[in-house]
Simulated assay, not measured.
Amino acid sequence: MTRLPALLLATLLAAPATADTLPIAVAPERAWRALLGQLEHDGLRAHAQLDLDRFEGRLPLPGAGTVEVSVDWDDTTGGTRLRWHASDTQPAHRAAARGWMQRVADAAPRLPRPNHLCQGPAPATNGPDADTYTGKASCSFGAGHFSSALFELEKCGDYESALVILAACVREGHAGGLVRLAQFFESGLGVPRRPERMTDYLRQAVASHTPGYSDGARVQYATALYFGVGTAPDRTAALHLFKTAAAAGDRDARDFLARGVHYAWRREDGSVYADPAWIPTPSNHP
């Protein structure tokens, strides 16, 4: 199995006129497992080029030729957007590709759902229903229902149900939920690891002006801009955000402006984001 070069599919799937899409009412992790299972069933996995972190691949499908595929989270529904682009656009080949993808979409909901509603591998017949966690999902609950339900679902590993709540956060523009989504895409919790989506949710969190939450997102977004995490580096914009945060009293922003490093956000390996060439100047202070 060959690993697909990162971000290749972002370019190949950028033309909506030539790409096809299917919605699937499950989280991307389960849809990706269905796709891998279909490849195994058809004896194609050894010949596919896959990026197992980004949930993307280049597949040699019988009757369809080479097909680029992307499994991603749909923040309008809380489910999955399965998108593909066939290199051969003849109607028969496109129909073959769609038929294969439909089999993936049909198989995904039948796969086991890990620890659904925190009930473990053998759910009780009288256990909690979905409304207990997601039926009243709304980020406007702040530190009430929203955060407590999300915490419980994340703690037990039911990221699929958590994503239903987080879709509500996107609809409501709630920075607390948007920051959690960024963390999901950083770590691949039920969704692909896609730093560009992580950074975009941080951007949305800052722009939402949610009291008590957007300020905390500002340093993280500034860090992404400064070091080019999931986006092209823009140190001018990053320094403006750091200064704004520092002026509002953010200690981490002040630390960064003083030393070129802070500890509010670390890489997954535990290392800090630091600029070894940082030289503090009066212009770097609010």
Rank of each mutant, 00 (worst) to 15 (best):
Y226V: 05
L239F: 15
A237P: 09
A222H: 05
R251N: 08
D255I: 00
Y226C: 13
T231G: 14
G212C: 03
D234E: 07
R251F: 01
Q220Y: 07
F242G: 15
Y226P: 13
H240Y: 07
T236I: 03
A253W: 02
F227M: 06
T244Q: 15
A245I: 06
F242I: 02
A232I: 01
L239P: 12
V219C: 11
R254D: 10
G216E: 02
Q220F: 04
Y226H: 13
F227G: 01
A245S: 15
R235Q: 15
Q220R: 13
F256G: 12
P233I: 08
A253G: 12
D252C: 09
R254S: 15
H240L: 07
A245V: 07
A245F: 04
P211L: 01
A217L: 05
A217E: 01
T236K: 14
P233E: 04
Q220C: 10
T223Y: 08
L225R: 13
S214G: 08
A248T: 06
Y213I: 00
L239C: 09
D234K: 11
A224H: 10
F227P: 11
D234P: 10
A222C: 08
F242N: 12
F227Y: 08
T231P: 10
D250A: 11
A246K: 06
R235C: 11
T244C: 07
R235M: 07
P233G: 14
R218S: 10
D250N: 15
F227K: 12
T236Q: 14
K243V: 01
G230W: 10
A253T: 09
T244M: 08
R251I: 02
L225A: 14
A224R: 06
A246L: 05
L225Q: 06
P233H: 11
A237C: 09
F227D: 09
F227S: 09
L241W: 00
D250K: 12
Y226D: 05
L225M: 09
A224K: 08
R218T: 08
F227C: 13
R254A: 15
A232Y: 07
A253R: 06
G249S: 10
R251M: 01
Y213P: 00
A246W: 02
A232M: 10
D250G: 13
A248H: 12
T223Q: 13
R218D: 00
A253L: 04
R235Y: 07
A224N: 14
F227E: 02
T244L: 14
K243N: 05
F256V: 05
R218H: 06
A247P: 04
P211Q: 04
A248P: 12
A222Q: 08
T244H: 09
